[in-house]
Simulated scan of single mutants.
Amino acid sequence: MPETDATEKIDSNLFITVSGPPGCGATTVCSQLADALGCPYVSGGDIFRELAEDRRLTLNQLTAEAETSGEIDRALDERLQMIAEKWGMSSKPFILESRLAGWLAGDRADLRIWLDAPEEVRVGRIEDRIETEAEMRVREVSEAGRYEKYYNINIGDREFYDLHLNTARWSKQGVFTIIRAAIESYDPTDDEGAFETPIVETQ
């Protein structure tokens, strides 16, 4: 089956969250979806950089501070939650991407996606980034511990996601084609209900 052209527009007003570990392909998918839907998308990485600029810190300095203070994570997640609240009421297409996007958006999200890939694949994908393989692994463990400590979130609990994809099994365009099909075939009259998402208190 030929892959769908990413430039073809998608007629939808869904609020979509995209989550996954480093190297899962979330940035690529979000860019493709934003172009096809003609909508904005916000990533947790962008908000983290904004927080660093607000505090006049480098990303590494802010990351180190987040390791010792819950205030950084809570500030980041509170901003993401406020964005989710705003767009959840807009009836317009929007994409929110972060590790906790599905949790933070809760039932405001229409479609919650988790992307993943085997660790060796993800490591290969981040080779051209500043972050090393060891740093990636340490960050994942650290973040998981902080999510559980602050919000009682088990990041390994993914049962409420509507779509869970191993992005190593398809090309970038193939992954997009699958997600596109899920969006275009969604009909609210056929929707019998999403899994409940636990409420996250960021304050």
Rank of each mutant, 00 (worst) to 15 (best):
M1L: 05
P2L: 15
P2I: 12
E3V: 15
T4M: 14
T4F: 05
D5P: 07
T7K: 13
I10C: 06
L14T: 02
L14H: 07
L14V: 07
T17I: 05
T17F: 08
V18L: 09
G20M: 01
G20Q: 03
G23M: 13
C24E: 01
T27L: 10
T28F: 08
S31K: 14
A34D: 06
A34P: 00
L37G: 00
P40T: 06
D46T: 12
D46L: 03
F48C: 05
L51K: 03
A52D: 01
L57F: 05
L62M: 11
A75Y: 00
L76R: 01
I83S: 05
A84G: 05
S98K: 03
R99M: 02
A101H: 00
W103V: 02
G106C: 07
D107S: 10
A109I: 06
R112S: 10
R112L: 11
W114V: 10
L115T: 12
R122K: 13
V123W: 07
I126W: 08
E127W: 03
D128S: 14
R129Y: 12
E135N: 07
R137I: 14
R137Y: 11
V138Q: 08
A144L: 01
R146E: 00
Y147M: 12
Y147F: 15
I153F: 00
D157T: 06
R158K: 15
F160S: 01
F160N: 02
F160I: 02
D162L: 10
D162E: 15
D162V: 13
N166S: 15
T167M: 01
R169S: 09
K172W: 08
F176C: 09
E184P: 02
E184K: 07
P188S: 14
T189A: 09
G193W: 05
P198C: 11
E201V: 04
E201S: 04
Q203T: 15
